[in-house]
């Protein structure tokens, strides 16, 4: 498994990322690739989301993502893994983050991608702040996100 971890302020193109990931997956002998891309949602009834600002903990973020990727590779026979997460100011509909996994068979690729997402949501030091017409608020962690980790223990 080789993990590509990127934490960046710049926007990214999920299609271009997947295109770049494909030959790496193929070269590793993968027969399946799974990718997930998270987008900034507009929130109905919240006065209209004008901006989302993502804060992170430089240094710890990269370490936490490396650790999550390494744990995934211990559980499933993976080819390359991509974890890409933005920080800074984002506007509606922009891609926030992306994970891609590759493996010989699809079950491992799907499960590893879900595992990465579940851990990334509550174990990587990112914090989202929403700015709407009604003011700003820090997004609260959801107990379902914490509960989601239970299935992997």
């Amino acid at each position: 498994m080789s993990a590509e971890i990127r934490v960046q302020e710049a926007a990214f193109d999920p299609g271009a990322e997947l295109s770049a990931f494909t030959p790496r997956a193929a070269a590793a002998g993968a027969g399946a690739m799974v990718s997930f891309t998270g987008l900034v949602r507009d929130l109905p009834g919240a006065g209209g989301l004008s901006r989302m600002v993502i804060e992170h903990y430089p240094g710890m973020t990269e370490k936490a993502l490396e650790k999550i990727a390494a744990e995934a590779a211990d559980r499933w026979p993976l080819g390359p893994v991509l974890i890409l997460h933005r920080f800074g100011a984002l506007t509606g509909q922009e891609p926030i983050m992306m994970v891609a996994t590759a493996s010989a068979h699809r079950v491992a690729a799907f499960e590893a991608a879900e595992f990465l997402m579940d851990y990334l949501k509550s174990r990587a030091p990112f914090w989202k702040k929403e700015e709407t017409g009604d003011g700003t608020r820090w997004v609260a962690a959801r107990s379902e996100d914490e509960d989601a980790l239970g299935r992997w223990r």
Binding site: Y57, M60, K121, W127
Partner: peptide, 28 residues
């Protein structure tokens, strides 16, 4: 987090250089 690893409030601080306090994380 102690030296950039998630930890607990009863953890010892011996040898720790960096302590970070923050709310539950909301990545993804």
């Amino acid at each position: 987090a102690l030296d950039q690893e998630l930890s607990e409030f009863d953890a010892p601080l011996a040898g720790v250089r960096e302590v970070a306090f923050f709310p539950p994380m909301t990545g993804g």
